[in-house]
């Protein structure tokens, strides 16, 4: 029975780890490609090779090693990205460039095919060579024009080539710039922000006003129970201010000081009261002290 449980546990763990891995590689995206490279960046051999950019949008490192990349719709296993190389690991939210130079022995990130400047097909398959991660059909591209995925997840041509960078990183206006154009005097944002600040604090105000009401009601109820009267007859319970509490505390202190009889260096006249029992009586348990009789 124990063995079955252990086996089941191991199987679950194995499945989980597989699922995690599969899920990780499925996160990968083909983000940009350049099929006609004449003036853009060069590969490690100084050649203007075509390239494919893969993006890892996950918050964990993903190893693309073992996955397949192809330009042939009928041959998903055309190029297997070698496993076990550190260069195939893509850190979270980072990009990896794969050179499509047609010479696979150039390294793990060099495919055995080139991208076609007249357009073509590109796909990324999982490490089983069957499960499609992503595919794209790209059109004929002019020299040094890339094919990129935009913010809406749609493919488009781009003159601004961004290898290993977020697409359109240089074209996108910052939120502040956009806002500056739409609201040059800052009136709208000021009004909106003040409204938000007031709304939040009004909400807190209402919430704690209700809470205070509930607190007062509970206090009155407790006071009524303690006094044995009707709740309507109890007034100001729970509304006591700090000075009332201070006065009560002082009165209690004085009261305790008055009745306090055991105090260092204070002589008390109060009789010591001890529970008597024959078992703890010294008189019963001790031998009587012999009397000393003096001869007259």
């Amino acid at each position: 029975m124990k063995k079955t449980k252990k086996g089941f546990l191991l199987l679950t763990l194995a499945l989980l780890s597989f699922a995690t891995r599969a899920q990780n590689t499925f996160d990968l995206k083909i983000n940009e490609l350049l099929s006609n490279n004449t003036e853009n960046i060069t590969d490690d051999y100084g050649v203007h090779s075509t390239w494919i950019e893969i993006y890892n949008p996950a918050y964990g490192t993903v190893d693309i090693g073992g996955c397949y990349i192809t330009d042939d719709v009928n041959n998903p296993k055309k190029y297997r990205i070698p496993q076990g190389d550190v260069s195939t690991k893509i850190p979270p939210l980072q990009y990896l460039l794969i050179w499509a130079d047609g010479i696979d022995y150039h390294g793990p990130l060099y495919t055995n095919f080139k991208l076609n400047a007249n357009g073509g097909y590109l796909a990324l398959y999982s490490n089983d060579g069957k499960t499609l991660i992503e595919q794209v059909k790209y059109p004929a591209l002019e020299a040094n024009v890339s094919y990129v995925k935009n913010d809406s997840n749609e493919w488009e041509k781009a003159n601004n080539i961004t290898p290993r960078l977020q697409n359109k990183s240089y074209e996108v206006e910052s939120a502040a710039e956009k806002l500056g154009k739409r609201d040059p005097f800052g009136a709208a944002i000021s009004a909106t922000a003040m409204t938000v600040v007031f709304s939040v604090l009004i909400l807190l105000f209402l919430c704690f006003k209700q809470l205070a009401k509930f607190h007062l009601k509970t206090s009155k109820k407790k006071a009524a129970e303690a006094q044995g009267v009707d709740i309507d007859k109890v007034e100001h319970a729970g509304e006591e201010t700090g000075d009332i509490y201070a006065a009560i505390a002082l009165a209690l202190k004085l009261h305790h000081d008055d009745i306090h009889d055991v105090e260092d260096m204070v002589i008390t006249i109060e009789r010591e009261d001890k529970m008597y029992s024959p078992w703890n009586s010294k008189l019963q348990s001790l031998r009587q002290t012999p009397e000393i009789r003096k001869n007259k």
């Binding site: 000021s190 922000a193 003040m194 600040v197 007031f198 939040v200 105000f205 704690f208 006003k209 205070a212």
Partner: peptide, 16 residues
């Protein structure tokens, strides 16, 4: 709790 609103009003300086 109404003192909360005073805290909100004083943020006017930020937006001015």
């Amino acid at each position: 709790p109404k003192l909360l609103l005073v805290g909100a009003a004083a943020q006017l300086g930020i937006f001015a």
